[in-house]
């Protein structure tokens, strides 16, 4: 909102400059503008073409081939896609990824909302904000290793405490029941602070007077949260949800470090399966087909999510 207010007069200034060069007022030299725009966009566009567009096209092409890295790819039509339908490891991967996404997004969003609200209503402390970011700053591999050691069934600190209070040993990362919730827990720990900061920044956009008048009218904190904070936070929340949905589907490093897809495929998520097919079995074509399906799936999910949350419209206007 603020940005659009300042943009208008600036544009008017541009026209005055053009007017000074003898151009008719009100007919800016649009073509020149575009040339300059292209020039400034060029570096980004080159990067985009080289590192996004080209690999995407190539990936779709590979998905129609038997490419195995060592020999030239041969076109095999839709064979990889047909194989996918019968591949129970693929379906299992989708299923466990879905399970992870639900666990992770729910826990992360609820916790982050709670943290952001507490910060918004109680404190402006920079120290607390900084502390929240610390887990997010630790590299994922380190996070995975730290938790793997702490949660180890035999020599881990957490199980030591559990045994001491008589709860027995839990194989957090080695039991098929616990492995996925544990991985989700680890990533929730790592990302909640970051998500909370995004939401907190969104909450700062909400005018203070709304809370003041609400509290004058006798509204409690919960009512203010459900009637003011949540509705006005919707665009930010939508962004956060889309980003964390895509991010959750991309879960890989924590699993590569802690469980390697085990036990019995309980954490063999879609990215790990793509990795196995591509870099352990060298079935690049097949791995590309899975990646294409995943990309389509994410596209659909994102569109649905944006629509549901009416992301682009803010109730603040």
């Amino acid at each position: 909102m603020v940005a659009s207010k300042t943009a208008t007069p600036r544009h008017r200034d541009d026209r005055e400059v053009f007017a000074g060069t003898g151009e008719p007022v009100g007919r800016p030299r649009r073509r020149d503008d575009r040339k300059v725009a292209w020039l400034f966009l060029a570096p980004v566009l080159v990067g985009f073409a080289l590192f996004y567009a080209y690999p995407t096209v190539l990936g779709v092409y590979y998905s129609l081939t038997d490419y195995g890295m060592l020999a030239a790819p041969n076109l095999v039509g839709a064979e990889n896609y047909r194989d996918l339908v019968d591949d129970d490891k693929f379906w299992n991967a989708l299923e466990v990824t879905g399970y992870y996404v639900v666990l992770n997004i729910v826990s992360q969003t609820v916790l982050a909302l709670a943290l952001a609200t507490l910060m918004h209503r109680l404190t402006q402390s920079v120290a607390i904000r900084a502390m929240l970011l610390v887990p997010w700053l630790v590299p994922n591999v380190t996070v995975g290793l730290l938790w793997m050691w702490m949660l180890d069934a035999n020599i881990g600190f957490v199980n030591h405490v559990l045994r001491a209070v008589g709860l027995g040993t839990t194989g957090f990362l080695t039991s098929p029941t616990w492995a996925m919730p544990t991985v989700a827990g680890i990533n929730t720990w790592a990302y909640t602070g970051y998500t909370a900061l995004l939401l907190y920044a969104g909450m700062l956009q909400i005018p203070r007077y709304l809370y003041e008048s609400a509290s004058l009218d006798g509204a409690g904190e919960w009512r203010m949260f459900t009637r003011i904070t949540l509705p006005l936070l919707r665009p930010v929340l939508a962004l956060v949800l889309v980003v964390s949905l895509i991010g959750s589907f991309q879960i890989f490093d924590t699993i590569a470090v802690t469980t390697k897809g085990g036990p019995v495929g309980a954490t063999r998520v879609i990215y790990f399966y793509i990795y196995e097919q591509a870099f352990t079995n060298f079935r690049m074509g097949y791995a590309s087909a899975i990646a294409v399906v995943l990309a389509l799936l994410l596209g659909v999910l994102t569109a649905v999510q944006m629509r549901l949350l009416r992301a682009s419209r803010s109730d603040l206007a």
């Binding site: 035999n154 020599i155 194989g171 080695t174 039991s175 616990w178 802690t258 036990p263």
Partner: peptide, 20 residues
């Protein structure tokens, strides 16, 4: 022998060396 679902993630050689 340890149950797989309660097994350590640490390599057997390390567990042996740790006397486990």
């Amino acid at each position: 022998a340890p149950r797989l679902d309660k097994q350590s993630s640490v390599a057997n050689s390390e567990l042996l060396i740790a006397g486990k």
